[in-house]
Design a protein around this nucleic acid. Structure first.
Lengths: 211, 211
DNA sequence: AAAAAGCTGTTACAAAAATTACAGACAACA
DNA sequence: TGTTGTCTGTAATTTTTGTAACAGCTTTTT
């Protein structure tokens, strides 16, 4: 069962031998929406490979402020976990399950061993770092160069693409947390988007019409 | 001459043998303030090790907008160069010399070879990625959680620490570019900081009193 | 020396975002 | 069924940021 999902998601990346090693040493784990995979300030000694579902990476400041950094989908791993376990440091971010997730946890020791043993693994690890740096750049772009109405619309369309459905189930308050703004601002701008015909508002739900 | 500076900056990180290899295959390069080490959209096939001076990493948007991401000091390398040369991708950022710099350029092939040959090199490369991810996080923090006056003051104090002098030689316009805001806003907030006794303003110069 | 170009301070105004407050709608539940 | 808590829409106000315009300097160029 697990090896099959491993193959589906990583088979085109890794050789048979590596897939088998992963299945052998990895812990399989299931997580429900809302559960925390990684807490701010915690330590981690495993590297997660996502098989199913999606996860959001969130930054927090001292005053309880939050900001969504980006989403992780199946076939991905989290570069901050790499940072965290290779440097043996506290986590700088928190990771929360968005859609029910299945994942495999790889012990750090193995992960380091494979770096030289499997070229494909090395490429995967570096590629992960590169993707994360790019995601961070895009986050910075939205913060530095976009106004709140654009950021809000981007949040909605990104989520639509992520979950593969045009219906987003979030309260205005939840969205406000993700964008680090106030609920009033989100409600106001959502109403504007509705008047422009881009979305349709319901209680706890938003239907995205254009994306 | 060069090997000496190499030893000074990297001797406590790398073994003798690796230092010698670096000196052998690396190109030595000197750059003046204002020169571009890396242009937006360009390709790069070498990884730079900074021996002297400092460099700033800047993000640009389509409309010519700019934003300072962070500074690089001697003993550092640039993770975006790694991204760039290992993935053979266009540069997402531009790198400009802040203080006259000396650096050594390592060909990608060597850099990859050393990953498995020298444990210390592998650690250095991963540590570089980790440091850059952290810097990016800090940049995101300032954008998401701080107001412009705080960002401006942070810019000034960061630069004081970087160059090791309390005198910053920049016009208000240059600072405005770095923070992606307007000159008027910078002038206004600088005046406020001066009234609070934290800085003293001159033409083309700012003296930072508290940091 | 005169002219041009660049830098700073300031004013007035517009736009964007944050804050406070409150009312109506809906859902959960005793 | 009535109460309570949550979610949404809206209005009024303040703070922050962006824009335009201009005067007074200093530095550079002619």
């Amino acid at each position: 069962m697990v090896p099959q999902k491993l193959k589906d998601n990583y088979g085109f990346l890794f050789e048979e031998e590596l897939i088998e090693e992963i299945a052998e040493v990895g812990f399989y784990q299931c997580m429900k929406r809302g559960e925390k995979l990684l807490e701010y300030g915690s330590y981690i000694k495993n590297m997660p490979l996502l098989l199913e579902g999606s996860i959001k990476i969130v930054r927090e400041d001292e005053d309880g402020g939050e900001l969504l950094l980006y989403f992780i989908e199946r076939g991905d791993t989290c570069a901050f976990s790499l940072t965290c376990c290779m440097g043996n440091k506290k986590s700088e971010i928190k990771a929360v399950v968005v859609e029910d997730a299945e994942l495999i946890l790889i012990p750090v020791a193995k992960m380091e061993e494979w770096l030289c043993k499997y070229q494909t693994w090395k490429n995967f690890v570096f590629e992960s770092y590169n993707i994360r740096l790019e995601e961070m750049l895009m986050t910075i772009d939205t913060l530095a160069f976009m106004k709140m109405d654009e950021r809000l619309y981007k949040f909605l369309t990104d989520k639509v693409k992520l979950i593969g459905s045009t219906t987003i189930t979030n309260t205005h308050q939840e969205i406000a947390y993700n964008l680090h703004t106030s609920r009033v601002v989100v409600s106001r701008l959502l109403k504007k988007l509705e008047k422009e015909g881009k979305i349709k508002l319901f209680r706890n739900k938003i239907e995205v019409l254009e994306f």
